[in-house]
Simulated scan of single mutants.
Amino acid sequence: MRYAQGGGLTDAERAARERIRQQAVERFEGGEQNREIAAALRVSVRSVERWRRQWREGGAAGVASKGSPGRPKLSDAQIGRLERELERGPLAHGWQDQRWTLARVKTLIGRLFHVSYTVEGTWVLLKRHGWSWQQPARRAIERDDAAVELWKKDTWSRVRAPRQPATPGSSSRTKPGNR
């Protein structure tokens, strides 16, 4: 089940959802049909079918919610350790440069905690804990901004191809007779 804006259920909403599941169990035991249960509880027939299958396999406990599948995989202590390791830098973990990429952070999490994240999940985890995307400024030490501006004014204006004037039949907005 997906929720707008990436949000989940509040504790009260989660408890109400559990009550609906338990009411469905009572109706299963009473012999009611799936469509009747779905209409009475205002849920989809597919949900009732899934709950009935879980009820057959595991009883009332089988229908109980297992919790959010998107719950954090790392504890607060593990997040703290991850942050300390990230601050040490990629070189300390065997990479050849000082750039943390999402793929590298994902690999680091796997090495440290034996937990698998997707690259997208790694980004969500980092954002949730205050990390941001950053791109290093790449400028040559030898760069001369004055020389670049001079080149743009003098050389680029001569090198670049001149614009072709619009002719009738081209994509020009004005036609010779409409001036």
Rank of each mutant, 00 (worst) to 15 (best):
Q54G: 05
V119H: 04
V115R: 14
T167S: 14
L9N: 05
Q164V: 13
R53V: 08
R143A: 15
S116Y: 03
W95I: 01
V115S: 00
M1E: 08
I79N: 02
A60G: 00
F113M: 05
K175D: 10
L126V: 01
R88S: 07
E18I: 02
L82D: 01
V115K: 14
Q164T: 14
L102A: 02
W95E: 01
V48Q: 01
R2G: 10
G130D: 00
R71V: 06
V115E: 12
H93D: 01
T101N: 03
T155Y: 14
G177T: 09
E36L: 15
R173K: 13
Q22G: 08
L41E: 02
K152D: 09
R42E: 12
G67K: 00
P136D: 07
L150M: 10
E26M: 13
A64W: 04
E49H: 09
R111P: 03
T167P: 03
A24N: 05
S65N: 08
L82P: 01
D97N: 14
E13A: 13
P136K: 10
E49D: 10
E49V: 12
R19H: 12
R173S: 14
F28N: 01
A15I: 07
Q5I: 07
R71W: 00
A103K: 10
R139S: 11
S65H: 08
Q54H: 11
E29W: 06
S75D: 03
G67D: 02
L126I: 04
N34W: 07
S75Q: 04
W55K: 03
R14W: 12
V63Q: 04
K152W: 13
I141M: 10
S170Y: 02
A92K: 06
E57T: 08
G110Q: 06
R46L: 11
I37H: 01
I109Y: 03
A4T: 01
G31D: 03
F28E: 00
W151C: 05
V48L: 05
K153H: 13
E149C: 07
L125G: 03
W156A: 12
R14I: 07
T101C: 05
P162V: 07
A4H: 06
L112A: 04
A140S: 15
H114A: 14
G62H: 04
V119F: 01
L86H: 02
P165Q: 10
S47Q: 14
R88M: 15
R88K: 15
